[in-house]
């Protein structure tokens, strides 16, 4: 579904992601874990076209999406929920979700069924469709960001640090939602600092340090790896 081959990317002359290769199969949840500044966000932003790729290639299915603009990549079926959420704060929940429809063309009935699916997954949003996104709590905003991404019915969903800034109870709720999405067969690449939770929900995982992939294995195997336990799980 998503294949990154020897990709390097960064900001100007600063190379943050160095020759990274990874792949995500259809219906798979893959975790990308690492510390602060390891290059997770840069990797996701370069995959989605928000920043340029200096080397390597990115494939979505059989299509080479390297260097394509973010809006085109979004329309090809890859949706990113960025760190910070990038919501439209003065627009209502309903309007945010409607804008989310842009990336995935839908007939009226398809659009309605997507609204229904999002409201079923996030019932809090349905209760406040007329509320401005900027007036929501952090947890509700994160749910809205997820819902907006789901409105395009993406082939693959990229989540960048979705638990950042959320209270523990909301983090638990968030990962429950990700688990539900996994059950529905959604393909997800999840970048997280919360290594424990991310590897619990993931089928496979990659560990990134200083812009390079240093470990790759199944979720349970990575959790029991000595390196991961020492560096990220405080064991």
């Amino acid at each position: 579904m998503l294949k990154v081959v020897n990709m390097s990317a960064g900001y100007g002359k600063l190379v943050v992601v160095k020759s990274v290769s990874l792949n995500v199969q259809r219906n798979e949840v893959v975790a990308l874990v690492g510390g602060n500044g390891a290059g997770k966000s840069t990797l996701l932003r370069s995959i989605t076209g928000l920043i340029g790729v200096s080397e390597g290639r990115v494939f979505l299915g059989d299509k080479n999406i390297t260097g394509k603009p973010a809006e085109k990549i979004a329309k090809m079926g890859l949706s990113l929920v960025p760190e910070g959420r990038a919501l439209f704060p003065a627009m209502t929940i309903l309007e945010n979700l409607k804008v989310g429809l842009n990336a995935g063309r839908a007939s009226r009935s398809e659009a309605e069924s997507r609204f229904d699916a999002v409201f079923e997954l996030f019932p809090d949003l349905k209760k406040r469709t007329g509320s401005r996104a900027g007036d929501l709590s952090g947890g509700q905003q994160q749910m809205l960001a997820l819902g907006r991404a789901l409105m395009s019915a993406p082939d693959i969903l990229l989540l960048d640090e979705p638990s950042t800034g959320l209270a523990p109870v909301l983090v638990a709720e968030l990962f429950e939602k990700i688990a539900i999405m996994k059950q529905t067969g959604m393909t997800i690449l999840l970048a997280e600092q919360n290594v424990h939770k991310a590897l619990d929900v993931a089928d496979r995982g990659y560990v990134i340090e200083n812009g390079r992939i240093v470990l790759e294995d199944t979720g349970p195997a990575l959790k029991s790896s000595e390196r991961v336990q020492k560096a990220y799980l405080g064991v």
């Binding site: 989605t48 928000l50 603009p69 973010a70 809006e71 979004a74 329309k75 949706s79 990113l80 960025p82 959420r85 990038a86 919501l87 439209f88 704060p89 003065a90 627009m91 309007e95 409607k98 804008v99 989310g100 842009n102 990336a103 995935g104 907006r148 991404a149 395009s152």
Partner: peptide
């Protein structure tokens, strides 16, 4: 709606295919 989205958050708008 797309114009308002761009006015509020250009990156968010691009990620929505605008």
């Amino acid at each position: 709606l797309n114009m308002r989205a761009c006015a509020e958050n250009k990156e968010g708008a691009r990620l929505c295919g605008i």
